[in-house]
Amino acid sequence: MEDAATSASDSGDGDGGGTRESGEQGGQPKKQRSFWKELPLLIGIALILALLIKTFLVQAFSIPSDSMQNTLQQGDRVLVDKLTPWFGSEPERGEVVVFHDPANWLAGEPTATPNPLQRVLGWIGLMPSSNEKDLIKRVIGVAGDTVECKGTGPLKVNGHALNDTFVYAGNTPCSVDDQGGQFKVKVPKGKIWVMGDHRQNSLDSRYHQQDKNHGFVPVDNVIGRAIVIAWPPTRWNTLPIPDAFDQNLSAAAPGALGLAGAVPLVLWRRHRLAGGPTGGNPRVSSDGTAG
């Protein structure tokens, strides 16, 4: 039986002289490109995918200071989820978030000078970008929350004391100083209040209350939530929300407070109209309902 290439070359000859080599008719399959010729294409595709991942999904960041000890150590590399904010999700209490410098918080901090290769790799997300002015802190309060520090603590959110087991060993939850360590603030809409886990070594929301945002970080400045320590391998770990934030820390809404206050009044009125001890009402029968 003739192969497919031979069959394709027979048509239209008209000389009945048998088959010709398929190469004569140009029907021979093209040679596969060598690996070295395809390598630039593969690298290009990989770079595009890396750039898309960095832009929309996950980005690596390097930890430059000790402000988040012991949760994060200087030199750790964390992966930050950038996808969730695209769907309208806002930061939650207890999350570790990376955000753009909101009001020149990093003024005076040394800036690294990467070499050209580091710049390219940082731009596409294959290594942390060293020239972006970003910070990493823990979210303590969200819109509507009242956050308070008195003395050495505990830190309170809406009147609830946090069991700050994640705070750096030897630190107190609150700092006793007159530069911002003692405070009581209410978080406005569209903002968050952030603090470092190394409380006595973190220039966070507490110490920027005189800036244009009064120490709050605009939600729009948040790049994403740090979800895992990816490097070094000995430090690999996830970054869950601490149990201290599992309790109901929400502020009571004014509407809810009004409803709670109205319930006893309504019950008293129903009882009165039904002819209770506070006096009867001849317009309503004893087996009827008021309202």
Rank of each mutant, 00 (worst) to 15 (best):
W193R: 08
D204Q: 04
P282F: 04
N171S: 10
G279F: 02
L239N: 07
P218V: 04
L239V: 05
G181L: 07
I229C: 10
V222R: 04
K191T: 14
L162R: 09
G215L: 02
H208V: 05
S285L: 01
R272I: 00
Q179T: 12
Q209I: 07
V263R: 01
R270Y: 03
K189C: 00
D220L: 02
V222H: 05
Q179P: 06
F166E: 12
K184L: 08
D287N: 01
S285T: 01
G224M: 09
K186C: 06
R283C: 02
V185L: 11
N201K: 09
D177G: 08
G276H: 00
P218H: 06
D287F: 00
M195K: 08
I241R: 13
L203E: 15
Y168F: 12
L265M: 13
F183R: 05
G181W: 07
A256P: 00
Q247I: 15
G180K: 07
S285A: 13
C174A: 09
G280H: 09
N281H: 12
V167Y: 02
G276K: 00
S205Q: 03
R235V: 03
A262R: 02
V185P: 14
T238R: 10
D246Y: 10
S250C: 03
P240Q: 12
P264G: 02
P188N: 09
Q210K: 10
G190D: 11
R206D: 00
Y207F: 14
G180L: 07
P282V: 07
I229Y: 03
Q210N: 14
D178H: 11
H198A: 10
P232K: 08
I223C: 01
S250F: 06
A251W: 08
D243Y: 07
D164Q: 15
R199I: 07
H208I: 02
T234C: 08
K189S: 14
G279R: 03
W231D: 08
F166D: 15
R283T: 13
K186L: 06
S286A: 12
A169T: 15
F245W: 09
I241P: 11
K212A: 14
T278L: 13
N201L: 11
S202G: 03
P188R: 08
R270P: 00
P277D: 10
L265S: 06
Y207Q: 06
K186H: 12
L273W: 05
V187T: 10
A230V: 15
N281S: 13
V222S: 03
R270I: 01
G170W: 03
M195L: 14
P232G: 11
T234H: 09
